[in-house]
Write a protein that binds this DNA or RNA. Structure first.
Lengths: 241, 241
DNA sequence: CCAAAAGTGTTGGGGCTACACCCATGA
DNA sequence: TCATGGGTGTAGCCCCAACACTTTTGG
């Protein structure tokens, strides 16, 4: 950050790419758009776009998120910078530096098709084919990141509506980690972590028909979890189902 | 990443900024350069510079690291992307998007002054004054990041020379976390984490004069630690000194 | 001999897994 | 009344913080 000379640097195009996850029926899904132009016409890609002159990457990412998902209350959604991808050959036509974000939304509101993309869809994570550009790598990085962050942050509540049951919260962990968790022990871990969730007094919700109605909780004030809620590893024997 | 139009986007300058930490005499230090030009002339700043046309941010960061530290074997040093700072007003003259990196070096090789900066120095972390641009925030983010990563990765070995004692490794944790650790329990945790360190057969080293010679270890192959080496929290009572 | 650091042993408490068991609801 | 999921209880195991203690060096 020294030696400023307006002729000494090369201009770059700067974009944002979004890895937007949601949970539907216990299944992790990822928002993708189908490209209409070359290169990679017909391929699926992560949604994204160019920064406008007065936007930060965060602002641009939130704008793109609103355009692509059609959600109105984008302000409250979880949006987090993942990393920046800057390999010189990542776009075959020009030099593009892309700031990637991970977003988590409570439930796929509807199949979207907004913005300028050919079409958009929530595809089950893992079933998407090869993506355009280096988006396979970005998506893999994003999935790994949220798996790690579930252990030590309250990130999981971002997948849930404002009021949720502990069973729904557990499904978030099970879907992202692709593993089974003991409901009883999960409950105690969550309630034993100060500030993770707070119970909504009195109310309860029927959980899809069968079973006892479950108490409702809201996200607590904490963002980091102490102690962390560690993912079971091979060698440990937790996990039914 | 759709709707490409070479006239629809604004060109940005892209730079890298480096938060380079080292450990000297049990004290965490940060590499800073003194700015020679406006704005912020005379202020300290993080080292960094512009991307060259065919460089990725990682390549540029490693090049800058070599220039600023004067180290020859930059290839083996730990370098990790932190995040990207893109607020429109972060540089008063022009639109600059900066990819920040965190680097860890075993020991300050010498006071450096390379590159084009006025001068460079290793200042004790926390004693640097206000930095130029948004570098205070970048530095705070970098310090927080390495503190978190010490818990679940083998990052601490990057602060150490190729062969090190467990006491030296413990000093890394104590300096970054600014806390005391029980040497006996630290030893058992490290040795009980598969792949963290491997002992160098036979040899040992005198640790600064007094005390029993300590066995030497190298970094093991593991990058992530299972179980994690958690930082003691208030409420827990660990920690002498 | 004393101080300092490495390294080993031990113990008591806490946490956590795995499971049994009861509760409330829809079909 | 049965299946299903919520919620509570608990026994045993394992981990681990908090020491005490021995070993090996320099002064």
């Amino acid at each position: 950050m020294h030696g400023y000379d307006r002729h000494a640097y090369e201009p770059f195009a700067v974009t944002v790419d979004l890895a937007v996850f949601t949970l539907r029926a216990g299944r992790l899904r990822i928002l993708l758009v189908e490209r209409g132009e070359e290169p990679y016409a017909g391929s699926w890609a992560l949604p994204g776009g160019f920064l406008k002159p007065d936007e930060s990457a965060e602002t641009a990412a939130r704008r793109e998120l609103a355009e692509e998902t059609g959600l109105a209350d984008v302000a409250g959604l979880h949006l987090e910078q993942l990393r920046t991808y800057s390999e010189p050959d990542r776009d075959p036509r020009m030099r593009v530096v892309s700031v990637a974000f991970t977003a988590l939304v409570p439930d796929a509101p509807q199949a979207v098709g907004g913005g300028d993309a050919a079409q958009a869809a929530w595809l089950p994570f893992g079933e998407q084919g090869p993506l355009a550009f280096d988006h396979d790598r970005i998506l893999a990085d994003a999935h790994h990141r949220i798996g790690v962050e579930l252990e030590r942050t309250s990130l999981a509540t971002a997948f849930c509506p404002p009021e949720f049951t502990l069973g729904e919260l557990r499904q978030v962990y099970e879907a992202v980690w692709d593993t089974g968790l003991d409901p009883a022990n999960f409950r105690r871990k969550v309630l034993g972590t100060p500030g993770f969730v707070t119970q909504v007094p009195g109310e309860s919700r029927l959980t899809g028909g069968r079973g006892k109605p479950a108490a409702l909780y809201r996200a607590g004030g904490a963002t980091t979890l102490h102690p962390p809620l560690l993912k079971p590893r091979p060698g440990s024997t937790e996990g039914p189902s």
